[in-house]
Design a protein around this nucleic acid. Structure first.
Length: 381
DNA sequence: CATCCAACCCCTGAATGGTC
DNA sequence: GACCATTCAGGGGTTGGATG
């Protein structure tokens, strides 16, 4: 007897149960890619490896663009309807559906390619974005060492499929949802670019704000950072107990403890490792050994410091040969042009408004992604 | 296997303090 | 006041665990 099921929600005009198939039954090959390392892009052959697939959007997103090394064979070129799977490492199970817009792509050995036949590729691909698939990957990839799933194992993944027209109907609906998400993403990118451009114009004084009564603000003054603020060192926090005071590292929030280093508005900046990602801090907080914070502000408001820090090219000031490093003296010696406090506040308010719109778009995008994930659970069985 | 990053630790130089 | 010992904080390289 055939194993069948019916999904919870469905488009009008379709009826009848969905039938259970193994992934291997609706695909051809299941071949491993090129066993070759990546080299600089040669202008013709684009290489796709696990890291070139975006974790969230599952799009081909190379950084930088590379080509495979050595002899390039046609059989490693992806075609319409090809779906690739990451087979080892922490990203095991990550998938990418070939999109002809990405041009000619040659796939790497850590990916396995399946060509989907007689079914809608996009419909099948969507199954690899479900919670059910994630769970399956988690179990199947368990090994004594690094996680992994081989070609034969991928073929055993089970899914339920309707008729081709119903698959296509679902696929076109879901791709419309994806398009909406992409539209918002592009909007967000544009706004981010706009913010960057405006900040440049503000800090080069091409744009100046006026006082509320229409008069000019005073001229900007050249200052050493050390004249207007002090740099505080982070400290180890391991000896502290649990609490509700956040501990920040160069990568952001780490944990919560029961003591604080500083209270008030401040800006964190990396001392080692990531030195070019300033963060705005407020309230009581603790920073680790590798994250500086600012304090004792004179003639400068912390939120403006945050803006200034975002415009500084920190990597230029790196003085170490190994892990990038900044020292207090380097930071204190930096020269900046400083507007009056009132103009600083205007600039801060203006840029924060743009930032709010960006954050708004971001939460809309997150919301849509969550909604789609839930939708997949209802539409598939 | 490569990358990232917190934690670790060594080195240096300034500050402090003691002794003759 | 000169000299030396000790302490301490900051600078910066190394290490190892986590992650992709």
């Amino acid at each position: 007897m055939m194993d069948t099921k019916t999904p919870k929600i469905r488009f009008n005009g379709f009826s009848g149960p969905w039938k259970k198939v193994k992934f291997g039954e609706i695909t051809k090959d299941g071949m491993y890619g090129m066993n070759s390392s990546a080299v600089d892009y040669d202008g013709k052959h684009k290489y796709i490896r696990i890291t070139d697939i975006d974790e969230i959007t599952r799009k081909y997103n190379p950084d930088p663009l590379t080509s495979p090394q050595g002899k390039i064979e046609r059989k490693y070129k992806l075609e319409k309807g090809d779906l690739v799977f990451a087979r080892t490492g922490a990203s095991t199970g990550k998938t990418y559906l070939y999109n002809s817009k990405d041009g000619d792509l040659y796939f790497a050995g850590f990916l396995i390619k399946f060509r989907i036949s007689d079914n809608d590729p996009f419909f099948v691909f969507q199954h690899t974005l479900t919670a059910k698939y994630d769970k399956w990957v988690k179990v199947m990839s368990m090994r004594s060492g690094q996680p992994g799933i081989n070609s034969e194992e991928f073929k055993t993944f089970e899914l339920y499929t309707p008729s081709l027209p119903e698959q296509q109907k679902i696929a076109s609906f879901l791709s419309a949802v994806d398009e909406r998400i992409e539209l918002l993403e592009r909007k967000k990118e544009k706004l981010e670019a706009y913010k960057k451009g405006v900040m440049q114009q503000i800090f080069s004084q091409q744009i100046r704000f006026k006082q509320d009564d229409g008069s000019e603000f005073p001229d900007w003054e050249e200052k050493r950072l050390g004249e207007v603020l002090k740099i505080g060192s982070g400290k180890d926090y391991k000896h502290l107990g649990n609490g509700n005071i956040p501990v920040f590292g160069t990568g952001g929030l780490m944990t919560y403890v029961d003591d604080f280093l500083y209270e008030g508005e401040s800006v964190g900046i990396g001392r080692k490792g990531t030195i070019d990602k300033p963060m705005f801090l407020k309230g009581k907080f603790w920073t680790v050994d590798t994250l500086f914070y600012t304090h004792s502000f004179k003639q400068i408001v912390p939120r403006f410091v945050y803006l200034v820090f975002q415009t500084i090219n920190w990597k230029v000031h790196n003085e170490a040969s190994g892990v990038p490093s900044l020292s207090k003296t380097t930071i204190e010696k930096l020269q900046i042009m400083l507007p009056s406090t009132n103009e600083q506040l205007k600039i801060v308010a203006f840029t924060e408004e743009i930032q709010n719109s960006i954050s708004n778009l971001d939460s809309q995008i997150q919301g849509l992604r969550t909604w789609k994930k839930g939708l997949l659970q209802q539409m598939f069985v």
